[in-house]
Nucleic acid binder design. Sequence first.
DNA 1: CTTGTTTTGAGACACGTGTCTCAAATAGTG
DNA 2: CACTATTTGAGACACGTGTCTCAAAACAAG
Lengths: 403, 403
Amino acid sequence: MLVSQIMLLMATGNGRGARKMTLERSQQSDQDHEFDALDDGFTLNRPTTKDLAKAAGVSRATVDRVLNAREGVKQKTIDKVNKAIQDLGFVRNLSAANLAKNRAYRFIFVLPRSGDLFLTEIIRHIREADMILVDDMATTAVKQLDENDPHAIAAYLGTLDTSVCDGVAIMAPETPQVRDAILRLRERGVKALPFISNQPIDGDWVGIDNHAAGATAATLLGRFVRATSGSILIVSETMQSRDSLERRLGFDRVINAQFPHLTALPSLETYGNADRARRIIAEALRRQSVVAAYILSSEARIPLTVLDEIRQSQNLARPIGLYQGMGAGDGGRALGHIVTISHERTPCTEDALRGGSVDAVITQDPGHLARSAIRKLKAMADQRSTLESQEKIRVEILLPTNL
Amino acid sequence: MLVSQIMLLMATGNGRGARKMTLERSQQSDQDHEFDALDDGFTLNRPTTKDLAKAAGVSRATVDRVLNAREGVKQKTIDKVNKAIQDLGFVRNLSAANLAKNRAYRFIFVLPRSGDLFLTEIIRHIREADMILVDDMATTAVKQLDENDPHAIAAYLGTLDTSVCDGVAIMAPETPQVRDAILRLRERGVKALPFISNQPIDGDWVGIDNHAAGATAATLLGRFVRATSGSILIVSETMQSRDSLERRLGFDRVINAQFPHLTALPSLETYGNADRARRIIAEALRRQSVVAAYILSSEARIPLTVLDEIRQSQNLARPIGLYQGMGAGDGGRALGHIVTISHERTPCTEDALRGGSVDAVITQDPGHLARSAIRKLKAMADQRSTLESQEKIRVEILLPTNL
DNA sequence: CTTGTTTTGAGACACGTGTCTCAAATAGTG
DNA sequence: CACTATTTGAGACACGTGTCTCAAAACAAG
């Protein structure tokens, strides 16, 4: 063992041995416990391209040709080098490589312009991640475009190429124009990644399974409702987006299969208009015996405000506090209490959870979304793969207790 | 604008201008839209220490002295350099610095030896993260020690110093010996980070708020139970650990405050013994009218198996399928159905969720735990800070729909 | 064999920072 | 003023990889 260590030091043959870290961990035992000493030891002094060249019996230039897939190398030589890589367990030193290439990563997030609270959170987290990314030679920029103008979005994407940025995360409606623009962007060598709103393009994307999100909302809602029958109010800003449709689909599937005593009403669309929302929600409440409400769009402010107004006007105000009380038995709750579930963690939904006007919030972590997109874009730029388990965006459930 | 770009190129004055990336993004507009052109442009060509030296009117050697906090520099000079750092927005190129220092990070996870499924998951994720960490010049090792032998753990920690590793994540019982060993480890310059099981040491740690986890379990359980009265079975492997105590505390607080019609029974301890578990659980079920069960330790296999056995023997088997049906109205469920909640995502609890023998699982993401610990140790080694929002471990809720 | 082509090697220089050494400049003291 | 102590500068070399150039070697075809 001692011998092998000495050989290792010789092999690296550099003039700065004093600064090298040693392999041996502890010498409390004078005997040569070969495996014991290695059982949690580390493999440092990683082999370099120089070592590789020596092991493969070729020059460093050839090693470089193989490593960076340059042409003009005989298959036999390629094999020799690859074998040496295997044998030595060579791993390219990314720091050195990036330094040599003077590599920097420039990413753009293309987002809607709407004043959505959830979007604000996402942008906040993109900027936060950006602060840290400086260390990785990466920068991000946010470009907000009118989400109702696919042409403008496609046009903007058309202006991008590798001289401008290395990757783009795109949150945009799924229209043919946008789809084509993305495909052409990729042809130009710019990495493109659908972000939050899915695109009908095969391959990677960052976001949650909205079907599962809707199904989860339904499971919670169904189990929280204590009434033995009644209707569920379903409110959305618009049902035009794929996200809303998928959530509704997942929701209905669970309600129908597991909670047949509840009736999911047709979706009410607010179009972002408070007056309209007030009118259609009030009418639905008058016509049906509503025991629950599901707000499926990411912007919950208007519907929540309207529901609160109605509650107060009917003097059915709920107990205020961290937790919702059961009252005596649960008799007091069966009537008047509308179990409410909404989406996305925002200051608004957090307050509603704490105040008790919302019972649960289904959400995706905006920070995770931002960082995952950046990690994926970076990996795509480097032709690397990412940790699947790290990038999976979870359908999270928020209660007042786990905010 | 054109002028400033030229000046920038001149300032960098290197002989490889061709390989540099350009600042301007797009020239579709011929006019000088100064701000428009910069609104999502990137700041590349970061200033180097050479630029810093020039700007501060000192030599690179002095810049280095200031950057690395070496002594023997006049305050006035330090100020000059710091001002230049501010003015230029200098950020040290970590790749280059680590390369120059030939820096590598060696981290050790000290974990219990028990055959816990959750622990297995954590180790799996540590190894997984380790594969990726090669790129960051970091390696991890796992050391498993008998969790019931604090002396041995303290002794092992005593053998570690900076020649062996740079940081240790420690999951160990909170005893004075371990506590002291951690403090002494830190004195020796090794970063130490309490992992999952909290230590009564101020400062950073990685794990969830177990009080909140217990409270969340209680909220879900209370709202899922449809019976108007009854008892809650509480099962743990042992109540010796702080985690179990805190969960129980949070659980009781919510049950007492919000669901007074339910009675939380005294904790049953299995001590990891199936026979004992079978006996004490059966007895509790006989004596009380049990409507719910809360399994608060991370190892849920034994209690879940026992509960299943009992259910089957009483022919109270629940409908099998992805979702639990309501039956007719909900009359069929009030009797016989024991709402069950357990902790930690493991193959066992996942199956139980899918099969319907567990209604919800409260968990912390093992992959996140592992990666967060590594990120924190790395940041500690570099005297850097981490993104708080990224490192916060969430109390997650798993239902069959959001696995 | 020669000729031409393909493949390889040797070496230089670059990336930005860290760490030395030694000389030079400056400040502080009597 | 001279003398010493402190502070600064100039420069070299290192880290591991990428990218060149030009010559040498190996190979194929005639």
